[in-house]
Amino acid sequence: MTATKTPTERPPAQRVVRRAGDRLFAGSAKGSGIFILVVLAGVAAFLIGEAIPALTAPAEDVPGGEGLSGYIAPLVLGTLLGAVLALLVATPLAVGIALFVTYYAPRRIAAGLGYAIDLLAAIPSVVYGFWGLAVLAPALVPFHVWAADHLGWLPLFAGPASTSGRTMLTVGLVLAVMILPIISAIAREVFSQAPALHREAALALGATRWEMIKMAVLPYGKSGVIAGAMLGLGRALGETMAVAIVLSGGAGATLNLISSSNPSTIASNIALRFPEATGLGINTLIASGLVLFVITLAVNMLARWIVNRRADFSGAN
């Protein structure tokens, strides 16, 4: 990230030499770049094209009978609920992990520990679904019961507690595990790049390790962590299989995290309904996919904007 500027400072002399090979190579390289833009535009265009029949269809023809917005709104809520829950759980953990690996773990094993966390990112999402269904959901049932008894005054834990554990809470935790490596990898990166001079100066002034981190590392890494969290959020929003396997979804909009009635998420709803869908059903699902596309696009653009802003700042070190 720091080396961004170097390659552009190339001597202008090469522009004089313009051979056929050069033109061909430069052309195909540029063509590939433009092709990517075309693909992205194509994704949007085809999704819109296939979604139009659902957008224009009369409300009662859309599955559910309450029009397109009535169909998609609970899904959007479910998507956001699960992803935000995952983000709230994963971000502090990921920061802790990153600090542990960069500044607390013994040097010799730190790289190995970092790799172990990266392994979490390598596990396919369908396997997370298997694990969530077979292990995590049953293991969390006692907590669901406890939360319904003791935290029931919060709308989030209104209950009645699910007896199978296949709730939005469990889904949020599975998603948290899945985005943990994404956030912690970026946090690790920026933490380890915190200027050594600042860190050593802090220590030389007698700061404890935590004070050094608080003064020299966290301020430097803050925007990186935020950007990492946004990327994690983007991943959690679009996660499909793990949610489809674990969640007991399909209910209307609710904030209740621990009952067995949960709103489904956009992505998992598509995966569950698509194989049997026909006609307008397909168009409706694609329209919901378009909504997901727009949401994740917005989140990712925001994340990139934060990252880029940070890149400008970091030119100072």
Partner: peptide, 23 residues
């Protein structure tokens, strides 16, 4: 290109599937 490649890394996999289906 840089910006949109970054944005593209965040496309949900199911949306990519829908795109291929639509295409």
């Amino acid at each position: 290109i840089t910006f949109f490649v970054d944005v593209m890394t965040g496309i949900p996999s199911i949306v990519a599937g829908l795109f291929a289906f639509a295409l």
